[in-house]
Every structure is written in structure tokens, then in C-alpha cells.
Design a binder for these strands. Structure first.
Lengths: 321, 321
DNA sequence: AACCGTGATTGCAACGTTGGAAGGCAGTCA
DNA sequence: TGACTGCCTTCCAACGTTGCAATCACGGTT
């Protein structure tokens, strides 16, 4: 029998006599033949691979996002390939330039340090979707988070709980990151709306959004401003670090200082005290991102689209809930 | 100029006149030409892709392992492709059979429910490495963890802290998992060595090794056995869940009940109280696994190798450290 | 001037697959 | 019996690359 007939059987081509079909199947089974993906993909011009490039899978938020993307990709017959940038500019540039492999159909990208202007200059033509807070001008499809809204919601919740000296822990002076800018902007808005003057000293910077820096940041913050009665942490990891710091400083949470995070990471339900946070629907984000990508893979050349996901406040013990 | 000359330039072939090299480069740049990975890989018979199949990236332990593998793979010029099985037997079988894509050079596999006998029957010929505790007989290279040792170390530490009613939280009756068997065996050994009778009631089962089940398991455990003065949790997630349960039950950790986990997940340093755990070096494991795989990719047909990683006790607050 | 050697360039084939067209075969109809 | 039809199978080419062999240009040698 010919090679092509085997191909026809494998691909369920209509015109194959059942008898022949059986015969081929038998031989395939006997020889343990596996159709070679590379050959197939070379012929078809697509691989079914999608690259995901994000800072680091160990951060719970990114881990959960990765997991959601793997699942969403699977549902669409795609497979995810993971690359970590560690938020390093050079690595992000490599990704934008086409790294890791020249064989993916699309890219889901979570850049942290690279600016939109630079992204716009990307010459690689594989379709890409950005996830996160990035300004206009990249020319790419995006799934974004309404971080201003997150900032106001968070701050308002703390105000409603009667707090007045609310610090924002997680300012990043180093990167001119839009995420930070937005969350901080929301924080400002909420305070001003309540007629409370924004104390710039309470916008406290941390080098990275990790537990360790939340810990150190909170320690310094409370040394400098012992009257702080609430911490709005830029993400849950910072909040966890801050809560540990408060414990060591002998401040009770939420009695003395309320703490609130963002992301609603799995662990937020099990910390002591449990952490009030703003939940972001990772599955939804993953689904939206792959939807945008799928449209591009199908050949869409519509102008770049922007989909936004809202955060939802989940009240727990750390703010007195 | 010919296609082949372009190929020569791209691949830094020695005999190309500098002038020609420049000319080609210029054109490449102007046309934004990117060598097509699929064609190249078809020619060379390898893709540089390695599949990683594990239960779920959201579990901190697996997330950290994934991260380490991504990094280790990168260091070897390989790219990792991630697939989640959710510890589902059917999904694990698909992976063993060659899913997700027929185009990876190797597989790093963390099966939870599939038995070694079945793995031995795997017909797919792509080299595979197992990570985790699995018995002999799979015929595959393995990176394993000395879980018996972990069990004794953990239990001994609790004994040294003066505890006598030590429960093992994380027994899995459902799966006849070797991990559990080994950690439980170590637990038994340590108790017997100290002349303490093993109370089978204190081997407490949980359906999955997640925070939630640690919480529920500990709640039930302490209702049934209020005299328990220490919990050896099968992993950190269970321990976190257990600590929350203890808090709600009004038991102080470590004063009333000591808690100890396994994995030394990042969050163990920030829980309240911080969690004593047994650290497993993820980077080392990743490196060993990819080393084994690399040997196979290089053509080695040596008999299956077994590399073992030891756990290291890290004492923190939850056991009175 | 014919020859040689070296380095630079090109041509050919093959990797494994599949779309499309062509070929073969049996059964049907005139 | 010959033409036609419809189903099944086979053949050819192409996807983009690179190893190998062949070709070509050119300066140096005899």
C-alpha cells in the first residue's frame, strides 16, 4: 500500500475501503508507527504551539495564570510552551524579537519592563497578545486589568472600614510601570474623593512585588510612619510579607493595621489572618487572550482589540471582615 | 544569490566571502526574513522541545519545579512545553502514549496515579524521565526523592521536640501512591525506633494534597483525637490548611500542636507561624532530570538510571524553632 | 599557456507529511 | 461489447531547511 493511503487512513479521509482501513490500522499498530509532527506541520504551515512568556511561574499569580492558559490552550487544540523572562529587559526583548523558538503560531506575552513603543516596533509577524496593564500604542491585542478601578475599590474598602492613614505598599520607582501608576492613581482618587489629603510619604516603594520586599517595605514603612492604620498592598505577595512584618512588630491585623492585597491568590484563604484581596479571574483572562489569538490565527487583520477584566473585592479577616 | 548561500550565512558557514555575507545580511534585514524552524527541524530530525507533564502548575511545589525546569532547559538550549494532567489517570495515559504533540525530543513526566507497570508498557519511543517517587520497573530514567528519609527526619524532629501523639496527615488510601507509602513508612520507623507504638488512627487520609483538604483533614483529626500534639503533614499545602484549622479550633501552634510540612515552599517562610518544612532542591532536581534526558538525546542506551535527592530539614516557628 | 589548488558558490536530494490530480478497477448502462 | 461512472488508490509536488557533492572563479605554478 502507498504512503498516501496511510495518510488517508490517519486523517480519516472519506474514500477508504473499510477493509483497507483496517489493514492499515493493524500495521500501524504492529509497527508502532506515529505520524511525525514536524513533517505534518511543515506541510500545513502551522504547529499548534503557542508560546507564553512571563516573568516567573513561581509567583502564584503567574502560576495560576499559566495553569489557566494551559487549560484554555488545550481546549482549543493548542499546546503551550513556557518561557520565563524574570522581568529582565533583555530577555523580554529576545521574546519580542521572536525567541524562544521559530515555530510557534502565536505568543501570549506578559512584559513588565518593556515599553509599548518598543513593542510596537516588533518585526516578528507571529500574532501576539499582551496580558496585563499596558498603554495603547503597542499595536497588539491586549487583555487588560482595570487597575485604576482596583485601586479605588481597595482604598475605598479601607476607608469604609474607618481607616485614615492608608499606605500604598508597592510603588515601583525603578520601572515606570503602568500597573503601579494605575493602582496608585486609583488610590489617590479614592482618598481625594473622601476629602483626605494624599500623603506622598505613604506611597511606599518596593523593588519587586515579592513577599520578601513586602516584608522589608512594611518594616521600614511602619518605622517611618507608626500611625499607619492600613496597608493597601500592590499584590498578595507583598501583603503576605507585610503581615509577617506587622506580626514581628507586634501590630495586630486587622485591629491595629488592616491589610489588603490584589490577585486573590489561592493562599489568601489560608493565611493567618486570611487576606482580603481583589480577585482577578484567571480563567477568563486566559480564555480572552486565547480567543484574541485564535482570531489572528484564523487570519483576522482587524485593528488591535482591547478586552478588560474587572477585579472583585473579596473581604476576609485582614480588613476586619 | 542562491538559497543555499543564505543558509550558509545564517549558519555561519566558514567559506563565505565577507562581502557576500554582508549583502545577504542586508537583504535578510530588509525583508525581515526569519529562518523557519519547522523546515530546519524537519531536516535535522529534532525540535529542541521537551514536554513537561505534571498535575498542576498552581501547586507551589510544581510551579517552582516548572520554573526550575524552564530555566534548566533554557541553559541546555531546550524549550519546555507544559501539559497538566490534574493527576487524572486518563490524562496521564494520554501523556504516556505520546500526547500532547508528536514533536518533542523528550518528556519530563510527573505521574501521580499511573503505575510503573503501565509506564513500562509505554510504546512511544521518545526518551522520558520521571520525577517523583516511583518504584522500579518503569524502565525509565528517574529523579527521585528519598521519602522514607523525609518521613523519619520529620517524625524524629517532632519527637525531639517532645511530642508523642504525632499524626501523619496526608495518607491517601485512594491511590496506592508510593510517595505516601514511603513517607508513612519513615514515620513508622522513627516512632518504633523511639519505642512509641504506632497508632494507625493517626495516619489520617486526605483526598488530595491541597490546602483545603489539609484544613478539613485536620479539623476531623482533632475532633477524633484531641490529644494530638503534632502534625506531620505530607506536604506544605496540607500544613497550611491544618494550621488554619488549628487556629479556628483555638489550638496554638506550636504550643499546643506542632506542625511540619514537606517541600519548603516559598510561602513557608511567611505563614503565621512560619512553617518548619523539609526542603527539596528543585533546581537540582530539574538539572538532574534534564541531564538524564540530555544523555538520552545524545543517543545513550544505557540501562535506566536512578538519581536521588535528599530533603533537608528547615526548622521554623511551627515546631517551636 | 595549460594546469592546479583553494576558496566561494550553487545544485541536488532528502527530512515526513498531505492536497490535488491522475490512475485503476469494478459495476452499470446502452 | 464499449463507454461511462464512482469509488478507491497511487503519484507528484511542495512545505523550508541543510549535508554533500559538484561547479565555478581566480591567482599561482610549472
Amino acid at each position: 500500500m502507498s504512503i498516501k493511503t496511510v495518510s488517508n487512513v490517519v486523517n480519516d479521509h472519506p474514500h477508504v475501503r473499510p477493509e483497507m482501513r483496517e489493514r492499515v490500522r493493524a500495521v500501524i499498530d504492529r509497527l508502532d508507527y506515529r505520524p511525525n509532527g514536524i513533517g505534518r506541520q511543515l506541510r500545513q504551515g502551522r504547529t499548534g504551539l503557542v508560546a507564553l512568556a512571563l516573568p516567573n511561574v513561581t509567583y502564584p499569580y503567574y502560576g495560576e495564570l499559566t495553569s489557566a492558559l494551559v487549560t484554555a490552550a488545550r481546549a482549543r487544540g493548542l499546546t503551550l510552551l513556557v518561557e520565563q523572562t524574570d522581568a529582565d529587559l533583555e530577555r523580554e526583548r529576545e521574546v519580542a524579537a521572536g525567541f524562544p523558538v521559530r515555530m510557534v503560531d502565536g505568543l501570549v506575552f506578559v512584559p513588565l519592563t518593556m515599553g509599548v513603543e518598543e513593542l510596537a516596533l516588533r518585526r516578528d509577524r507571529t500574532p501576539a497578545v499582551l496580558i496585563g496593564e499596558h498603554g495603547d500604542g503597542s499595536g497588539l491585542d491586549r487583555v487588560t486589568i482595570d487597575s485604576i478601578d482596583i485601586g479605588t475599590t481597595a482604598t475605598q474598602h479601607l476607608l469604609d472600614a474607618g481607616r485614615r492613614r492608608i499606605a500604598f505598599l508597592g510603588d515601583k520607582s525603578a520601572h515606570r510601570s503602568p500597573v503601579v501608576a494605575q493602582r496608585a492613581a486609583g488610590y489617590r482618587t479614592a482618598l481625594e474623593r473622601s476629602g483626605i489629603e494624599v500623603d506622598p510619604d505613604l506611597l511606599w516603594p518596593v523593588p519587586e512585588w515579592e513577599r520578601r520586599h513586602g516584608f522589608e517595605g512594611a518594616t521600614e514603612l511602619l518605622r517611618a510612619h507608626p500611625d499607619v492604620d492600613a496597608i493597601f498592598a500592590a499584590n498578595d505577595l507583598i501583603a503576605f510579607g507585610a503581615m509577617r512584618a506587622l506580626r514581628l512588630l507586634g501590630r495586630r491585623v486587622p485591629d491595629d493595621v488592616a491589610v489588603l492585597g490584589v490577585d486573590d491568590v489561592e493562599g489568601a484563604q489560608y493565611s493567618a489572618p486570611t487576606l482580603t484581596s481583589i480577585a482577578l479571574d484567571r480563567s477568563e483572562m486566559a480564555d480572552l487572550a486565547l480567543g484574541l489569538l485564535a482570531d489572528r490565527l484564523a487570519g483576522s487583520d482587524a485593528p488591535p482589540r482591547l478586552l478588560s477584566v474587572k477585579g472583585e473585592l473579596v473581604v476576609r479577616e485582614s480588613t476586619g471582615g
